[in-house]
Amino acid sequence: MKKFGLFILGGIAAIVLLSHVGPMIGLAISLAILYFAFKKFMKTDSTVGKVIWAIIGVLALTASASNVPAILGLVAAYILYVVIKNWKKEKHQVVTESSDPFTNFEKQWAELNKH
C-alpha cells in the first residue's frame, strides 16, 4: 500500500512539475540577469553605469518575484525527488528461524554480557 501511495504522490508531483516548467525557466533567466546586473553594478565606477545596472537589477528582481508558480514547481521537484528516493529504499529484514530454541537466548545473553 505504501508503494501505491508513493506512486500517486509521485504522479501528482510530476504533473505539477511539468505544468510549471515555463515559469521555472523564466525564474532561472530572470535570476541570471539579476546576478549579471549585480556583478556589473559592483564592477562599474561611473554613476550613470551604476544607475543603469540598478534599474536592470530592479526589473530582473521584479520579474523573479512575479514567478511565484515557479516556486510550486520547485516544491514539486523536491517532492518527486523524495518519492523516488523512498521508492528505491529497500527494507532490510533479517529473519533467522532456527530449530534450536536457545539461539535467541544465547544472542541476547551475549548482548547483555557486552555491557
Rank of each mutant, 00 (worst) to 15 (best):
Ser98Tyr: 10
Leu61Ser: 08
Val82Leu: 13
Ile79Gln: 09
Val58Ser: 02
Lys85Glu: 06
Val51Met: 04
Lys50Leu: 03
Val48Met: 03
Leu72His: 06
Asn67Leu: 05
Ile25Phe: 11
Leu34Trp: 12
Ala65Met: 13
Lys39Asp: 05
Ala32Pro: 14
Val83Lys: 03
Val83Arg: 02
Gly73Arg: 01
Leu61Pro: 08
Val75Arg: 04
Leu72Arg: 02
Leu72Ser: 12
Gly73Cys: 08
Ser46Ala: 04
Ala77His: 15
Ile79Cys: 08
Lys39Glu: 04
Glu97Asn: 07
Ile25Val: 11
Ala63His: 04
Ser98Thr: 05
Val75Pro: 00
Ala32His: 06
Leu31Lys: 13
Gly49His: 03
Leu27Asn: 10
Ala37His: 02
Leu61His: 05
Lys43Thr: 05
Val83Tyr: 07
Ala63Leu: 10
Leu72Glu: 01
Lys40His: 10
Ala37Gln: 01
Ala28Asn: 14
Val82Asp: 01
Met24Gln: 09
Ile55Trp: 00
Lys40Ser: 10
Ala70Glu: 01
Trp87His: 11
Ile56Arg: 07
Met24Glu: 07
Ala63Gly: 12
Leu31Thr: 11
Gly73Gln: 03
Pro101Ala: 06
Phe36Met: 12
Ala63Arg: 02
Gly49Arg: 06
Val51His: 06
Ser46Gln: 08
Gln93Met: 09
His92Lys: 15
Val82Phe: 13
Glu97Tyr: 07
Gly22Asp: 05
Lys89Ala: 14
Lys91Ser: 06
Val58Arg: 00
Ser46Ile: 03
Lys91Trp: 12
Pro69Val: 15
Ala60Met: 04
Ile52Ser: 02
Lys43Glu: 12
Leu34Lys: 07
Trp87Ile: 09
Ala54Asn: 08
Phe41Thr: 04
Ala28Met: 13
Lys85Cys: 03
Asn86Tyr: 15
Ile56Glu: 03
Leu72Ile: 09
Gly57Tyr: 08
Trp87Gln: 06
Pro23Val: 02
Phe38Gly: 05
Ile56Trp: 05
Ile25Ala: 08
Thr96Ile: 14
Ile29Cys: 10
Ala76Lys: 05
Ile56His: 11
Gly73Tyr: 13
Ala60Ser: 11
Trp53Met: 13
Lys39His: 04
Lys39Ser: 05
Leu34Cys: 05
Thr47Arg: 04
Ala77Tyr: 15
Ala77Thr: 15
Gly49Tyr: 01
Tyr78Arg: 11
Tyr78Ala: 15
Pro23Ala: 00
Pro23Ser: 04
Thr62Pro: 01
Gly26Lys: 06
Ala76Cys: 10
Ala37Tyr: 02
Met24Cys: 11
Met42Glu: 13
